[in-house]
Design a binder for these strands. Structure first.
Length: 423
RNA sequence: GGAGAGGUGGCCGAGUCGGCUGAAGGCGCUCGCCUGCUAAGCGAGUGAGUGGGGAAAUCUGCUCCGAGGGUUCGAAUCCCUCCCUCUCCGCCA
């Protein structure tokens, strides 16, 4: 969330930002609650000051065995007033919080203006479209023909948007996960994490999934526990309510987890194939950085994610999300979009974001600056490195051959027991 | 699931019959002194949040001893609820 004082002092900018992000939120309520709250706060603090000093003198009187009856009677009245005021303030605090939690992050100045995904400028492109002398197939056709993806049985076991992997398909997904983790831990300096796949409400609120996006989460019956929609949630919360030392920053974590999303509101979208599942696998990259170099860290994180596709030798492009397409918690986001010949489109395979102190403020993650003094909020970043299911889609579609077989990319073969082709 | 113990500042750890304890003592850290360097020693300082005054150094109010309620003029200290940790027993991957 944003800093209360920041909103108070820059309310016009915040309202402009809400417009740019197509967010329908009126801040007039915020204004009135905020001023009211501050009035009551001054009042109650004055009374508390009186109570504190009086309590001291009552203690003194009692020690000297003198009568303190009249003061006690007076303070009884004061305490009653304080209790009443505090209750009012508490109510206002809750109202204020619920507004604060719904305000999205301020975009960084380098974020281009725009209404939606069509306005995202392409930052750079890597590689080329594979030249195919035949009509490329979509991955769902390839996967079913090869017997490695079984959409019907997945739906039978659970429902729509659940898929059964089989044989070389299951192994290929596992190979991709292991390959990615090895790259990030061995070559990019990340520490591997295996976090809980179920988290509590506090963790979900810290990273921004709650309260606004409850509809997209799977909640466990009768508990305040949720299935994670991304490893970002448990991994960012590793340092919830902690103060790090400046020399510890930046911290790099990578984690494989399954991800669970309801995909509410996307009925009829990407219904075929592996693109939009309720459960998918992802290797995530998470960073905690000092504010002064968090944007350098974002560029590096992006490069780390890209390197996976480069080693797989798959064509992709990078877009800079515009104000209208930017996620709720992010200040800036790059999407990596991979080329899918079977569908003839670029599809998002990774989303790399700097959240600045937006999540850190919610999660209360701070660090003590080198020069000493009060702790500051860290900047948090994360990005997919990459979504494994969609990477598998990209491999199938880009490495397909005319006969429907799929060549396994060189770098994955050691992870596939030396297998070279799936046929 | 049953029985018991406990949750205090960056860490360890005191806190008596509720009141000069935002918190003793120690460690760590910072600054200074001293020894040729290192180690040791000596002295001083060192929690967080939020509000107000001042150009600033800084001064000042309020809150915080797992979380939330309650009792009281006053609670880290008493009562209730919840959460977490540890030990033992049972069960289980």
């Amino acid at each position: 969330m944003l800093n209360l004082k920041f909103i108070r002092n820059n309310i016009d900018d915040v309202e402009q930002m809400l417009q740019n992000r197509n967010t329908n939120l009126d801040l007039s309520e915020f204004r009135s609650i905020d001023t009211q709250r501050r009035q009551l706060l001054t009042e109650t603090e004055g009374l508390k000051n009186k109570r504190n000093t009086c309590s001291d003198s009552i203690a003194l009187l009692k020690k000297q065995k003198q009568d303190a009856g009249s003061q006690i009677a007076e303070m009884r009245e004061v305490s009653r007033k304080i209790k009443k005021l505090d209750a009012q303030i508490n109510k206002l605090d809750n109202q204020l919080d619920s507004i604060l939690y719904m305000i999205p992050n301020m975009p960084h100045e380098s974020v281009p203006p725009g209404n939606g995904e069509d306005d995202n400028p392409v930052v750079r492109t890597w590689g080329e479209r594979p030249s195919m002398t035949f009509e490329p197939q979509a991955h769902w056709t390839l996967g079913e023909q090869l017997g490695i993806l079984d959409f019907e049985r997945g739906a039978k076991i659970t429902g729509a948007r659940f898929t059964l992997y089989r044989g070389a398909g299951a192994r290929l997904e596992r190979a991709l996960i292991n390959f990615m983790l090895d790259e990030h831990t061995n070559n990019h300096g990340y520490t591997e994490i295996l976090p809980p796949f179920i988290v509590n409400k506090t963790a979900m609120t810290s990273t921004g999934q709650l309260p606004k996006f409850a509809d997209d989460l799977f909640k466990l019956e009768g508990l305040d526990y949720y299935l994670i929609p991304t490893a970002e949630v448990p991994v960012t919360n590793i340092y919830q309510n902690e103060i790090l030392e400046a020399h510890e920053l930046p911290v790099y974590f990578t984690a494989y987890t399954p991800c669970f999303r309801k995909e509410a509101g996307s009925y009829g979208k990407d219904t075929r194939g592996l693109i939009r599942q309720h459960q998918f696998n992802k290797v995530e990259l998470v960073k905690f950085a000092a504010p002064e170099n968090s944007y350098d860290e974002l560029e590096k994180l992006l490069v780390n994610a890209e390197s996976i596709l480069q080693k797989l030798n798959i064509h992709y492009q990078i877009v800079n999300l515009c104000t209208g397409d930017l996620g709720f918690s992010a200040s800036k986001t790059y999407d990596i979009e991979v080329w899918l010949p079977g569908q003839g489109v670029f599809r998002e395979i990774s989303s790399c974001s700097n959240f600045e102190d937006f999540q850190a403020r919610r999660a209360n993650i701070r660090y003590r600056p080198k020069e000493g003094g009060k702790p500051h909020f860290v900047h948090t970043l994360n990005g997919s490195g990459l979504a494994a299911g969609r990477t598998l889609v990209a491999v199938l579609e880009n490495y397909q051959q005319e006969d429907g077989s799929v060549v396994i990319p060189e770098v994955l073969r050691p992870y596939m027991g030396g297998m070279e082709v799936i046929r």
